[in-house]
Design a protein around this nucleic acid. Sequence first.
RNA 1: CGGGGUGUAGCGCAGCCUGGUAGCGCACUUGGUUUGGGACCAAGUUGUCGCAGGUUCAAAUCCUGUCACCCCGACCA
Length: 575
Amino acid sequence: MKISKYFYFTSKSVSQEDEAISYKLMLRAGMLLKHGAGLYSYLPMAQKALEKVKRVIREELDRDGNVELLMPFVQPAALWKESGRWEDMGPEMARFKDRKKNDYALSPTHEEVITDVFRSQAKSYKDLPISLYQIATKFRDEPRPRFGLLRGREFIMKDGYSFHETQECLQKTYDAYFKAYCRIVERLGLKYRVVQADTGNMGGSMSHEFHVLAERGEDEILFCDAIGLAANAEMAPLPKNAHFTKSNGTGGGVEKVGTPGATKLEDLERTLKVSMVDMIKSVAYELVVPGVGESRPVVVFIRGDLPVSETKLKKYLDRGELRPLSVDTAKKFGLTLGFMGPSNSPKTGVIYLFDHSLSQPGKFWVSGANETDFHFKNFQEGRDFQVHESKDLALAKKGDRCDETNVYESARGIEIGHIFQLGKKYTEAMKVSLHGSDGKPMVPTMGCYGIGVSRLMASAIEQNNDERGMIWPKAIAPYQVHLICSNMKNDAIRQAAEAFYGELGEMGFEVLFDDRELQFGAKITDAELCGMPIIVVIGNAFASSGQFEVIIRQGLIKQQLGKEATVSLLKSTLL
RNA sequence: CGGGGUGUAGCGCAGCCUGGUAGCGCACUUGGUUUGGGACCAAGUUGUCGCAGGUUCAAAUCCUGUCACCCCGACCA
């Protein structure tokens, strides 16, 4: 491609508002245009890279016998009502009515549609297993889109779905997908980690997330290589005794103390001279279940200094959304905000949960007395309150114990892939029924598998860049070679560059040829910004000694080579 | 959803406090000189100052409303 005929506009400066490196670089390199929050045009250079990402994905999936199809972006609400998710999905699913006042959604995901596709075609257990996938646009009305392509509202995703007769068969496909995702990320040359994950509102049991490691990634990953455990920080399991601490030893009987206005733990720390480690914190939420009128308070009791993982908490609650507890609801259920604590006479209708950290018989705590302006001292588990079935509810952090002898380490990542075993959530809800081998009806079990295509492209840049610009992995670089003619007005140089451009094309290389009448400085700056794996300059060195200047973008390693040597370097590096 | 901020040329911004006919840099067009790390000279082009209403002789500027976008938060009851 000759740049003089391309649609390619770089800029020196972009707004400093957004922080993601990948986003700024793509804007400067003229790859992306933002039209609104989380809505982008992929300009030609970005489109080339996207197509290459898709190609890698297709090759690895097709190899395993996964079959590609394409489903609609606009989906009838009827399907979502069948699965029950029309109510469950919340405002991130964009909904609208057509001219006949029927409800539709812009697809955030395709479980319902694929299930409809499957049940309309497959008739018998003999049609199993089958694994279908598509590469398509999704829309999720994120509460806060940011970081360019890393969290857009409209984005490109590869989503795959598989159907099976047995759990064993599902496991096989799941394992194959696991390996395929590893191959895909490895082909892109990216550093990554696979972690145990939450299934969220997708339903199902087993789930893994694939994270591309990046310093500014949105997700925190906790891992321990010694025991082979890695998890999203929200989910990272903590052993029961992870947060046990010695009692502060004051001892004695329970004592009720006046603590006027001390609704915050910091107040108590000051007035009672007690560490948060020795306090019981009550974190209160309101559980709102769609379709059910009244919400219920949820109260979590946990050691004072520990944060609650809402992700873990949600796992213990059937369904619904968590919100901060409103004053009105607290009053209605008789909860004394700011002075709550475990009690042997719980309020009716309130869901109480205890974190493992409180399951320490004998330890003396400071706790709310369930009476405004009063707390208990020397409050003892087993004597003054009972912990019924403590749960793992604390948000784990770096340095927390992950078993008896090891502790978690931490890394940051960008979630680019997620695989789930869904089970029969959708096939049952949507009444999928096949003829089984015994002649009776059978309901298949499902898996689902996603990779963010546009996010993966941005992640590659997020992980690979330097002060000069982006550095494309060769598997997805928009072009393999960036050829610069340093001076278009010098006939010898220009002719040599044009000839070499033609020859490289015939050899099958994808070449971006900078044939603009610009100064050398502008051209080399653009080339470094756009980050193709190899930059070839035909200029002064050619004029004086017939040599090409070859620059490996990774590390900016420069060397002067004759034409033959240049070609063989390109072949050995790129093919 | 709560708090904060910003909307002025294609891009980045100043002007607003203290109302008086719209400015800077980059980019772009034309001509000339340049040609190895974002050149220089000269002459140009580009705006319903987010939108609506109000105050005023007069509004980018003051007031009200509204929309869009951005940032922080939505674990410590």
